[in-house]
Computed example of a mutant assay.
Amino acid sequence: MAKGKLRRRLRRFDESLADQPVHALTDRVQIPSDPVSPGRRITTRVVYALAALFAAVIIVYLDRHGYRDVESSPNPNDPLSFLDCLYYATVSLSTTGYGDITPVTPSARLINVLVITPLRVAFLIVLIGTTVETLTTQSRQVYQIQRWRNKVRNHIVIVGYGTKGRTAAAAMVGDEVAPSEIVVIDDDAAALERAKSAGLVTVRGSATSFEVLRLASAQHAKAIIVATNTDESAVLVTLTARELAPKAKIIAAVREAENQHLLEQSGADSTVVTSETAGRLLGIAVQTPSVVEMMEDLLTPDAGFAISEREVSPKEVGGSPRHNTDIVLGVVRDGKLVRVDDPEVDALELGDRLLYIRSADAER
């Protein structure tokens, strides 16, 4: 009964955001793209214009017997030369028209093609460049959003791009997760701009809404990281995300340990108590600061040592994880983490996964 009321409250919108036309979502969803310099954009436009020009020249040349040059001498019925075709295509595409002043000599027509036409093209670029850029940018965004929504699967959604969310994204990118596979949900424009600058896909809105989560394709995500600023919003986001994505792995951060059970009851697979973890490290640093330094090293995947996970190889089956060539910290068996000194995992089995310490520098 309570779950049904929650569902009706969360779906209070008159129209689903995820069901809206793609062009209506360009202010909410941002797909990062490679920056292009203005000089390259202008060069591309000029190349397109020249391609259209020479296509017209070929068309006219192939049908040159159907054209007549009234200024030809002595016989106006002679077929056009290639230069005549080039001239005709040039004045046609540049919308010059046929007025009272018409170049009639080959030299004048050659100057018209080589000098006047580039000036006309430059003028047109300056005159309509802004409008063309606006239309092409919007069209490109619509195409990118549509393509992304059709293909995105098994990605990672980060709810909240504050200190916790930003650090989580950096850790995953350092652990060789492609930025394009990370989607950030936040309602703060500055945070979304930072995420976009890092190459991440962004969705503007509150993740307590079903529709915003659907817009980020959370129902197809393999993992959802809840890094909100308050425990109350973390619980509501976790509850909403679990109902929308029952198979996704949800990792949630909570400030106070007393709220940890609420996140677990809401559907979080893993929880991190940020205040107690930070306080514990501060206390340890008083007596043994080197331990904190080592912990920081282990939590940085792209340098020094790092904690990683891998599957047991056939050669390791039956052996003890304590005698492994890698420094093994624990064994994951049937989805449950078991300490390496537990007699239950004294003999490794096929399908086990090892938590071990790897050297990021050695792998590079």
Rank of each mutant, 00 (worst) to 15 (best):
I185Q: 05
R140C: 11
G351S: 03
V331F: 03
R255M: 14
R194D: 14
P74S: 06
R166V: 04
A360C: 10
L53C: 00
S308R: 15
A51T: 06
A190I: 08
R204T: 03
V159F: 06
I101W: 11
A2C: 05
Q265A: 11
T288F: 10
V203N: 09
L50P: 04
E309V: 13
S308M: 08
V312M: 04
N229C: 00
V142N: 12
T208S: 06
S73Q: 10
A241Y: 03
S107P: 00
N154R: 08
P21G: 05
S72M: 12
F54L: 09
D14Q: 12
N75E: 11
F13W: 08
A198C: 02
R8C: 08
K3I: 02
G99Y: 02
G335L: 09
S209K: 08
V332T: 04
A108N: 10
A18F: 10
A285T: 02
F210D: 10
E309G: 11
I111P: 07
H65W: 09
L200C: 03
V331C: 07
V177S: 06
L114H: 15
G4A: 07
L350T: 06
G66H: 11
S16W: 02
S359Y: 11
S107M: 04
T131D: 14
N324S: 12
A248D: 13
M295N: 06
V115Q: 12
A216M: 04
A55R: 15
Y98A: 06
A52D: 09
V226R: 01
V121Y: 11
A234Q: 01
I101D: 03
I31S: 11
R153L: 08
R45S: 13
K336G: 03
T271W: 02
